[in-house]
Design a binder for these strands. Structure first.
Lengths: 126, 126
DNA sequence: GAAAGTGTATTATAGTAATAGTACAATAGT
DNA sequence: ACTATTGTACTATTACTATAATACACTTTC
């Protein structure tokens, strides 16, 4: 998990976004235990209260289940819901991007080219 | 200009982003006068201090030139720089999106399909 | 049962964002 | 010259984020 304290997005929100992405990516099984509040805070070099806040909000969303004294546990949606959510989040991003490109006068064909470039360049990484 | 007071992004930053996008979109000519601080604040239903802060930061970036008592004026970059910046901002967004899609296990071909869908759906709007 | 680990809650402090109200200097229009 | 407009600056207040330092209840482990 990567945290940027200076990018304007609240740290507790970055934690939530990161874990949600991990769930969508299939990196958790249902019932998996997440790091204890104090441990994750140590690892990320942030205050335990900030992690506690992220966990509390994720509990409210149903993404985490808490066992006081025992730990916090991931609640993974059913596979069919996961599949839908994966494409929905990407499609939402794409809609915003297409709107922005249209605003800037970049033609649809050119946007497709730029996407191809972006996908090509990713091959050199990892 | 659209402002969302509740989306987490500071209002003064939304103003900056909106004006920067307008410049890239070619909606301003060099030297065009922008709305006075108090007028824009009225129009957006926000505090004049917030607009003043946005203008001040844009002055620091060289995007605005101030004439105290006279108004604030847009400084548009040269056309060649505009062309480059347009594609750079979109390519940066595309790189993040491609990385996210890859994380979610969405294949490149499927991502292109979803982009085509997003572009198709925009035709029904405007 | 006792100790360690864990979740949760509370209080206090500092920094930023936004609002509210006021003030003043420079410009524009008459 | 006078007035209205405009940019800018300042103080005060409220809300949110993050940190710091404790405190307490529940569980796990021995």
């Amino acid at each position: 998990m990567k945290i940027d304290p200076d990018n304007g997005i609240p740290i507790y929100q970055q934690i939530i976004d990161g874990m949600h992405l991990s769930v969508l990516a299939g990196r958790y099984r249902d019932g998996d235990r997440v790091l204890p509040v104090r441990e994750l805070a140590m690892e990320l070099r942030i205050n335990p209260n900030t992690v506690a806040k992220a966990y509390r909000l994720m509990q409210d969303e149903g993404l985490l289940v808490s066992r006081p004294g025992g730990g916090n546990f991931i609640a993974v949606p059913a596979e069919e819901a996961l599949r839908r959510e994966r494409e929905e989040t990407i499609s939402a991003d794409l809609a915003k991007l297409a709107a922005k490109a249209r605003t800037l006068g970049i033609p649809p064909e050119r946007l497709r080219e730029l996407l191809d470039n972006a996908q090509q360049e990713r091959r050199g990484e990892s």
